[in-house]
């Protein structure tokens, strides 16, 4: 690495396009809504920056606090589910024969190449009352009835007729959708760390008398921690801010904070309140990231102590 002074022209040529883009089209817009959060509506489009805190106070309205709470809860459950589903998948890929690895990885990434809207839309056909999950369940129900009929148990056990589950337009559907859309975000970082894991560490653990399960929890999980943390962050943050998934799959009682922000900027046209909410969401995100940095720092410190 050399000082930028060694070749200032080259340095500026490298740094300026990205830095300017970031400044003009990222930092400046964020700064603008940061300002708006302290503004008041002065007309249909005009907003005066009066440094009022009313918008932030508005965010702490119990309704919105409840929404934040629900968003956090939905994102947490979805993240945990993605982790539980994704960890064995990542393990399987990293221990697959070398020639199969790219293929399975591709299989995991492939759905990414489909627009998020289309993937979310595809979930509707699967989850609705006349959707495929319910068709499947109904089929199992019929099978059960036929099997149990000779014993006269069919009505007792299976009920009089099949009642389709309400799978769509509720929080469960939203969680399901988040896991579906963001699962690759969990699998990829997990795979990246597991793949770099020294196999002989696992062999050493088995060799010293630990069983497979013990080895998984004492060796694999602690050593895959960086990947697990990245996966959690990569799923949790988008899940926290989602509005498309909850908009299409959620019901009236599963509005998330993203939906409310969108509404302030589109239908409700209350930009200052929306801006304040966006920044609260940003602060929550930063808190999560700071927590991660703190945990990482503490562990690093322990290692050095």
């Amino acid at each position: 690495m050399e000082s930028w002074r060694a070749q200032p022209a080259v340095f500026w040529a490298f740094v300026l396009p990205g830095a300017l883009w970031l400044l003009c089209f990222f930092i400046a817009p964020l700064a603008l809504i940061w300002l708006l959060a302290f503004g008041e509506r002065a007309g249909p489009v005009e907003i005066d920056i009066t440094w009022t805190l009313a918008n932030y106070a508005g965010v702490f309205d119990p309704v919105y606090i409840g929404l934040f709470g629900r968003s956090l809860w939905v994102a947490t459950v979805a993240t945990v589910l993605a982790l539980v589903i994704g960890l064995p998948v990542a393990l399987a890929i990293s221990f697959a024969p070398a020639r199969l690895k790219p293929l399975i990885l591709l299989l995991i990434i492939l759905p990414f190449w489909t627009n998020i809207l289309i993937r979310t839309y595809a979930m509707i056909a699967v989850l609705r009352t006349k959707g495929f999950v319910n068709f499947g369940l109904e089929y199992i129900w019929q099978l059960g009835t036929v099997v149990l009929a000779p014993f006269g148990l069919d009505q007792a056990v299976m009920g009089e007729r099949f009642v389709p589950l309400e799978l769509l337009y509720n929080n469960t559907a939203v969680i399901f959708g988040i896991v579906y859309v963001y699962l690759p975000f969990m699998v990829l970082p997990l795979y990246a760390t597991l793949d770099r894991l020294d196999r002989s560490l696992l062999e050493a653990s088995l060799d010293l008398g630990a069983g497979q399960i013990r080895t998984f929890f004492s060796i694999i999980v602690p050593l895959a921690r960086p990947g697990i943390v990245s996966g959690i962050i990569l799923v949790f943050i988008p899940a926290l801010g989602t509005f498309l998934i909850s908009d299409l799959l959620g019901g009236t009682d599963s509005l998330l904070i993203g939906n409310v922000i969108e509404r302030q900027f589109k239908a409700a046209n209350n930009w200052p309140l929306g801006a304040a909410m966006s920044f609260v969401l940003l602060y929550v995100t930063f808190a999560v990231l700071a927590l991660r940095a703190w945990v990482a720092g503490r562990e690093g410190g322990l290692g050095k102590a």
């Binding site: 020294d198 002989s200 062999e203 088995l206 060799d207 010293l208 008398g209 069983g211």
Partner: peptide, 14 residues
């Protein structure tokens, strides 16, 4: 491996 009366020193030490 975990039930064998042998132990190993790995090349990478592990």
């Amino acid at each position: 491996p975990n039930r064998r009366p042998v132990n190993m020193v790995f090349q990478s030490y592990a």
